[in-house]
Amino acid sequence: MASVPSTTAHDDTTRHDGPSDGSLQCDRRALLVGGASALATAGLAWLGWQSRPQTPVFLAGNQRYDQDLTRTIRDGLLATGLQPESLQGKRVLIKPNLVEPLRSAPQITTHPAVIVAAADVFRAWGARVTVGEAPGHIRDTEMAVEESGVREALVQEKLSFADLNYEDVRWVRNRGRASKLDGFYFPLSVATADLIVSIPKLKCHHWVGMTAALKNMYGVIPGIVYGWPKNVLHHAGIPETIFDINASLPPMIGIVDGIVAMEGDGPIMGSAKEAGLIGISTNATALDATLARAIGLAPDRMNYLKLANRRLGPIAERSIVQRGDTLQACYDPFYVIDKLHLQCLRST
């Protein structure tokens, strides 16, 4: 295993490609106040990362889809501060990544075993669990559910599915304000969730470097308002809208499927990478920053993580405490395609 390169010199970045520092200062206060209020209302105050000196992220290496992932996920959630008693009766929306499924390329979408294991954990803690997705490239959601293998899992586990592309929607103010968008239309299953669990596939991404817990939230945006693909977001700026969506959502945590991940030309055409990794945190920004380091990218060079830094969570290594396996043990650089805008994101 290679050693993890230090990115300390770049940590706590304040420079970014978003709006001026003045407007961000103002927005940050609004965001933090609003976020704390929402968490308190939902009874999920343990999600507040600002009061902790370090934010915990759990990594588990050598994972397989045919092993007891329920235990891994439960351990990871508990190790990163989740309080099970707060989930009794709560609406939990599990959001996998089913962007463009193909049975012969399982590295594109979240494996059903991870979805089922997460659902088992949350149901055991008394939550009301729904799986929901708004695939970004295809209008036929039933096809996405079928081709990803998720349909069988839904039937076997008696899990309900919310087609987020076609649900009725509710307008929510954009609390990030990095893009020009005033707000977002969220599907009702998203807008009314007490907790969203982002369960993406860990992949290289040919525009923004990496897609994991934060980028996966593009998939809560409804096609009937934004189209297929959700081109309104692209025109408003991909890093900016990743940040804005996450800043405007109900409380969200991440469980990332990196067992068979994707390297190279992600999020669709990349190659399978047997990484054996599961990443978990109650803070998606810290989780994504850690996973970026694990696959050989520098989080402080990725625009959407720079925007999220210290507004949605920390990306600095010294602000994150590792649980489970060490970052060193899980470090396994992914192949990055030979394009300047991607090569400059590499940590070495």
Binding site: R139, G223, V225, Y226, G227, W228, P229, N231, V232, H234, H235
Partner: peptide, 13 residues
């Protein structure tokens, strides 16, 4: 034609 005004043209619309 786009899905939504002021965005790019796509196949289905």
């Amino acid at each position: 034609w786009a899905w939504v005004s002021d965005t790019s043209s796509w196949v289905e619309p």
